[in-house]
Amino acid sequence: MLCLMVTAVEFQSVTKIYSGQEVLSNLDLHLEARATTVVVGESGSGKSTLLKLINAVVQPDSGTVFLFGKNISELDGPEHRRKIGYAVQGAGLFPHLTAHQNVTMLAKLENWPSEKIEYRYTQLAEMMNLDQSMNDNYPHQLSGGECQRFGLCRAFMLEPAMLLLDEAFSAIDPITRTSIHDQFMALRHHEPVTTLMVTHDMREAVKLGDRLVILRDGKILQSAPVNEVLDNPADAYVRHLLETQL
């Protein structure tokens, strides 16, 4: 069988330095289109910086990042970011807006017709198992899990070409997390968008990911399909990570 891998994102010799410290060192990485790639690493390993390089919140000090063949540093920031869904730990919903307003804010700014906005909103809310009665609730009136679900709805709202999840399932209790995982996977199955997810939780990585990237001190130790990592850990550190967390 001919397996043709389409590259969504390509890092070419990317180095990022924060106050004299190399956070990413000469890093090369391909992200497969429509797959979920999970970056695992400890705090300070540079995994959040990977996300910020893709949505151009930070620029590389050397090297280039391409999104579907285009050099990201040459794109208009806001326009580029709207094509990339983004969800963060704790959801990051705006406290002065209702759940519905948080999710639909960007669609309104993009001048979507209101029927389209409502259709899309209802579709996402149903997939994430969110009741319509919560539409007008402010974030402080919602549970952590509900906030996180609305946060994911916001990330999916504009039918993005790519999805970035920064520890988006942390800070939720394990039972709720499992059900959100399931809803998220169902949604992704329905809309297989290229996803880059950052976590420090190996179980979550194995459960949700198609490919794993193990990052340590700004360098990639291993980048491979999940099974390959499980079967053949690249080195002692990766093995240790798998053994202690799984």
Partner: peptide, 10 residues
């Protein structure tokens, strides 16, 4: 976090 989100969502 909200500052970061407001940039990151475009």
């Amino acid at each position: 976090v909200l500052q970061e989100v407001s940039v990151a969502i475009g």
